[in-house]
Design a protein around this nucleic acid. Structure first.
Lengths: 216, 216
DNA sequence: ACGCCTATGTGATTTATATCACTGTTTTCG
DNA sequence: CGAAAACAGTGATATAAATCACATAGGCGT
């Protein structure tokens, strides 16, 4: 993939940015960055100076407990942006979340300065920002639902299907320990539940991988 | 209190709405509503046609599990607005949350139609909306932190101090059952934990009330 | 004043999950 | 290759909270 941003890229991945002037502005102000799989894009407490629009790949967003344990919040993928970052940029605050490249990821970074300006200038930008907030809000509520109202087996199934959907693959590449940290539970619990799912014919287990056999 | 909206009211409770034109617009389009304590302002699945700005009183916002149990999310009080409602209005969706008047409450309702329009017209309105989203986002994250990383005793303390702060009073008027539902746990657990706090001299218990003795 | 409903207190038991302790098995790396 | 590390399986036990089963106490209505 080219390091250059082109009008084509923007039109392709962010078709909602309809105003030609906005497209030009993005071109003029944006910069491409690439993050290899697993690399840290943003961390708790770090200052943020640009808003990432995801061109290619995906990002895992998580929250940290006092003791350093993590909790998976949601994935972001192409065509999306990190709302938490936006809010940090706008009020010049520090990040509340951690963002890690889930795959090799290319983002288009937009500088702090223009974000707010565009809100009142370009309708499609304003809509994009509001919709992003909305979506994230919903994800958060759904996360709250899961932790508050569901038992671990449900949460695990949900996690597996979200991950499978993100990667467009029935084969999930992850260790039990990784899953356990994402859900902030013990590794043994996950191992046992997975074993259960396998014996019920819902998944196949391999080292570092889980294969979903049905739609969950 | 008068049912009339005055420029004075707006300037007093929403001093950030600095543009005179915006103030006029609010005056022209807003309508006062009053909700007695305990009344249902909005429910899961209901359609919303206006955005409430809170003039007086406060609102408790909660989320419902599949089984009908509730989970307290956050309080809203004067000078604030319900972001979830805003997002519903904007995309004409159905409410994800329940809002109940925590005290006698007066709100200024703004019709769907103008909310989006103002975003690009009045800077202070745009800022207000974005800041509301932000704040709510933070509350959600803090709720997630609580459920995911804290034990019940911590959650209870947090709940008590939030409630005390909202009502500006060390005396909280609530039954153990109400608290338990808000936290989505059993009544007995709350009773036992409260008893504990009392024996440690942190609170006094009475029928339908809890008095905080120290800052928690 | 009596009875009833709601709120509270408390023991006993059950359940989900965590924690501990250990075994094997696969991968990595010197 | 051989050792060490990472991953996975599994029993035993511990813990937090739920659930069950009552007992008691405070207010309210008639």
């Amino acid at each position: 993939m080219k390091e250059e941003i082109t009008l084509e890229t923007i039109r392709q991945y962010f078709p909602d940015f309809s105003e030609p002037e906005l497209q030009d502005q993005i071109l003029a102000n944006g910069k491409m960055y690439r993050f290899p799989e697993g690399s840290l894009i943003m961390d708790f407490g770090s200052h943020v100076r640009m808003l990432p629009l995801i061109i290619e790949g995906s990002i895992k967003v998580s929250r940290e407990g006092e003791d350093g344990s993590e909790l998976f919040l949601y994935y972001l993928s192409r065509g999306e942006s990190c709302t938490m970052t936006f809010s940090c940029c706008m009020s010049d605050k520090v990040s509340e979340i951690r963002a890690v490249a889930e795959e090799d990821t290319v983002i288009l970074g937009l500088p702090q300065r223009v974000l707010d300006e565009w809100m009142m200038k370009y309708k499609s930008w304003k809509n994009f920002v509001l919709q992003s907030y909305d979506q994230r809000m919903k994800e958060m509520i759904s996360t709250i639902d899961q932790i508050a109202f569901s038992q671990l087996d449900q949460r695990l199934l949900d996690y597996l299907s979200k991950t499978a959907e993100l990667h467009q693959s029935k084969e999930i590449k992850a260790t039990h320990l990784q899953i356990a940290s994402d859900l902030n539970v013990s590794r043994e619990s996950i191992s046992r539940l997975l074993k259960n799912l396998e014996s019920r014919g819902q998944i196949n287990l391999g080292r570092n991988k889980i294969i979903l056999l049905e739609d969950l």
